[in-house]
């Protein structure tokens, strides 16, 4: 059952991804990207990552879509038809194929999917599962690892979000004024 859901979800994801490549209406693209996120959230649930699924649904399908739509309202929603259809796609395609081939090559030696004996589950992870209850006393191991064992990562994560806010404020905080002309147009704050 698990495996079947897994396969179906992955197939849907693949279909969505192909759609994303082809569609040129950016509204549709953003919506489809939201659907992609929702599907992946579903996949995460199947793979026992409920916290991640929750977050992906909220962020990928929710916040991210809202932000994209907000931006689309400002930049227009139609992607230009590629002018150099023939030539343009060759190099990216080659890069992607090589990268993909390398990854597939790498997965050949990956331990089989879902095997409890995989090295990935030992060394550190089993420690968390065994000790969290004694050391932290929180049943949700993900929370324990997130906020305590690897709490410093989470602090970094918070800082990244804050950095994004600082970046957006720096970029959009000056009020909308069209910049035109040469190499060094006047800045926003001059008007103030």
């Amino acid at each position: 059952m698990e495996t079947a859901t897994d396969i179906v979800l992955l197939a849907l994801l693949a279909a969505t991804a192909v759609g994303l490549v082809r569609i040129r209406n950016l509204f549709a693209v953003v919506m489809l990207a939201g659907i992609y996120s929702l599907l992946s959230a579903g996949l995460f649930t199947v793979l026992d990552a409920v916290d991640v699924a929750f977050t992906e649904a909220a962020v990928g399908a929710g916040i991210s879509t809202v932000l994209f739509l907000g931006a689309l309202a400002l930049v227009g929603h139609r992607e230009k038809k590629p002018t150099r259809t023939g030539r343009m796609q060759v190099l990216p395609l080659a890069v992607v194929l090589i990268t993909g081939a390398a990854l597939v090559y790498g997965t050949m030696d990956l331990p089989p999917f879902g095997d409890a004996a995989n090295p990935v589950h030992h060394r550190v992870a089993d420690h968390y599962l065994e000790e969290t209850y004694h050391e932290i006393g929180v049943p949700n191991v993900v929370t324990a690892v997130l906020a305590s064992y690897r709490g410093y990562d989470t602090m970094g994560e918070t800082t990244v979000v804050f950095a994004a806010a600082v970046g957006v404020m720096l970029l959009l905080g000056g009020g909308a004024r069209r910049r035109r002309g040469g190499a060094a147009p006047a800045s926003e704050s001059e008007s103030e």
Binding site: A163, V166, M169, L170, G173, S187, E188, S189, E192
Partner: peptide, 13 residues
């Protein structure tokens, strides 16, 4: 080069 208003944010970044 950056202008007055954004300076505190500049230093934050």
């Amino acid at each position: 080069e950056v202008g007055d208003r954004r300076i505190p944010l500049f230093y934050a970044a």
